[in-house]
Write a protein that binds this DNA or RNA. Structure first.
Lengths: 335, 335
DNA sequence: GTGAAAGCGCTAACAG
DNA sequence: CTGTTAGCGCTTTCAC
């Protein structure tokens, strides 16, 4: 199928393609209003659509931004994307989205693909805190700024936006304790994801605040998926220990753990209080009688975009690291 | 920042850019093996990455596929994208994703944007069954094939892939009844989304099978979001009617309805059985003691991609309409 | 097996 | 205000 080009329009009107180009890019200052209208009208009538490829090639700038996310199981990253896309589009940028599927190899591929598409910046949440660090450096050294969000990378000088996992965790576990739990299992996240460390610390400190002894048998690696959460719970139960609360890493893994309890008729599940941090920015509380904390994902997206666009506009700018801690939305549900 | 081009490589090696181009695109037939190796090595060393924009412009083909989805609240569309992306990448296509946010205006914008990017085909799930039909026709008439998935459009000759909503609904409601429910509220989907009609029919017929009278006061418009589901439940309760089961449209709306019940202490929520069709292809069962039905989203993605690629390869091909009905994965949970 | 040249659709100097 | 010209980076005839 043949697309209409500015040359087609120019020929039809018997004028030069420069004028057409000027008119079509809204250069009111250099085109007579009458010619302007004429050109725009015929362009419309002929079904003209400018070829972005050609424009990009010529302008040596694509106005493309890449977004790399690790997974699509949680709604967290999707919500992030939606907000970011909105924000970036408003500034005239297109977004190219790539999903790494929690795999560093795929992530590397995605990064290369985005470079080949000549993106002008990348928003990314990594799969592994130190698997592709060298590659990130390479990309940045090519002059493509990266802003990391949610999941952090070790030893890289780049802007980043994350939330205060420690505080969130502390808050969540405190809520569990306040609601009467004493034997709280922590379904810890995998070591290769940055957020796990702080959350574990939050868990520990919350226990300490209430003088509940920390027992490391209550900390089990829970992974991200429901399946892994389930396995973790099975492992825990096989130790013959009791529990009355769960502080999970992911919403899905926490639910996985819960369903194992049910399946084993461990006790009616409503006796066990659940609490988890889903994504990193959204704390969902599964048990209805407990507290829910929500950290708007949108805020993270907005800030990430701002940081990235600043970097693009001025590459010499200092890198910023933002930790979201303020305006958490706290919902208390009546018991 | 300056990218390395084939000319840079050619200069460095003192050969012509044609040979470099040939070597780099793996034309073993027209390049001496030795030259080949030399070129590839220096290209690598210089950090060459071919400029897709230029290639596309020259080749007059982009190998871009657009995917338009209506929302990102449900994980359904995300899963679809992930699978589709994998599938298409394997065939050498890039994917450009756009989210319409349940808004026909944004959808139209997205469509235009994808055309401007010269996508060679579009996979799409629409916001409204007849708001942009004219535009769809225009796009198709431009020679860009569209495959519609999940949500159907009225009166358009295009390939489509959907699941059998009637059967799914029937199955779900039957499960509720089998588990003891008699007073089942149907949180119906909005009129402008195609799937609602068949689901309602499934609900109705399942009731009939068990000789439960159909009462239209038990059918309330539930929307897609948790909020809308909640409002629907409030409206229903204000009628002073009893319920012991919910057959929802979306997972989120169903959960929204549930939380209203809880908030009003309507009765302990575990007495109410829930059941919903999430996305269109995924039936999730919220209540633990019930049955879960899963229709792999992946299958829908695979089929959609296949249909689209076939259309691209051979535009004259007949349009196909596929209804997924087979291999549903049925999980029974022990009571 | 390799090089020279044309051109994809567009923009941006530079003249007029 | 408008036209001419020169590319952006790449592939692809057509010669040799």
């Amino acid at each position: 199928m043949k697309y209409v080009t500015i040359i087609d329009i120019a020929k039809k009107l018997g004028i030069s393609k420069s004028t057409v180009s000027r008119a079509l890019s809204g250069d009111t200052h250099n085109v007579k209003p009458e010619t302007m209208r004429l050109i725009c009208e015929t362009a419309d009538r002929m079904g003209y659509q400018r070829n972005e490829m050609a424009v990009n090639l010529r302008r040596q700038s694509t106005r493309n931004i890449g977004i790399i996310i690790p997974e699509v199981v949680t709604s967290f990253f999707m919500n992030f994307i939606q907000q970011a896309q909105k924000e970036l589009r408003a500034k005239g940028y297109r977004t190219i989205i790539a999903v790494s599927n929690e795999d560093a190899g795929q992530e590397a591929e995605n990064l290369l693909m985005l470079e080949a598409c000549r993106v002008e910046g990348i928003l990314m949440s990594v799969c592994h805190k130190n698997h592709n660090t060298a590659l990130y450096h390479t990309v940045v050294s090519h002059g493509i700024p990266i802003v990391f969000f949610d999941r952090m990378v070790e030893g890289i000088a780049a802007s980043q936006v994350r939330i205060d996992d420690y505080l969130m965790a502390f808050f969540m576990v405190e809520a569990l304790i306040r609601s009467g739990c004493r034997k709280i299992v922590h379904l810890a996240g995998p070591d290769h994801i940055s957020n796990g460390y702080d959350r574990h610390r939050g868990y520990r400190d919350a226990l300490e605040k209430f003088s509940i002894p920390y027992d490391k048998r209550y900390v089990v690696k829970g992974g991200l998926s429901a399946e892994q959460g389930g396995f973790a719970m099975e492992r825990f139960l096989s130790e013959g220990l009791e529990l009355d609360g769960i502080f999970g890493f992911t919403e899905t893994s926490t639910l996985g753990a819960k369903s194992v309890l049910q399946r084993l008729h461990y006790r009616i599940p409503e006796d066990v209080s659940l609490c988890c941090i889903s994504g990193t920015a959204l704390c969902t509380l599964v048990h209805p009688t407990l507290t829910a904390v929500e950290q708007p994902v949108g805020q993270m997206a907005t800030l990430s975009c701002k940081l990235l666009l600043d970097q693009i506009a001025n590459p010499a700018l200092d890198k910023e690291s933002i930790i979201l801690r303020g305006n958490m939305v706290v919902r208390e549900s009546t018991r």
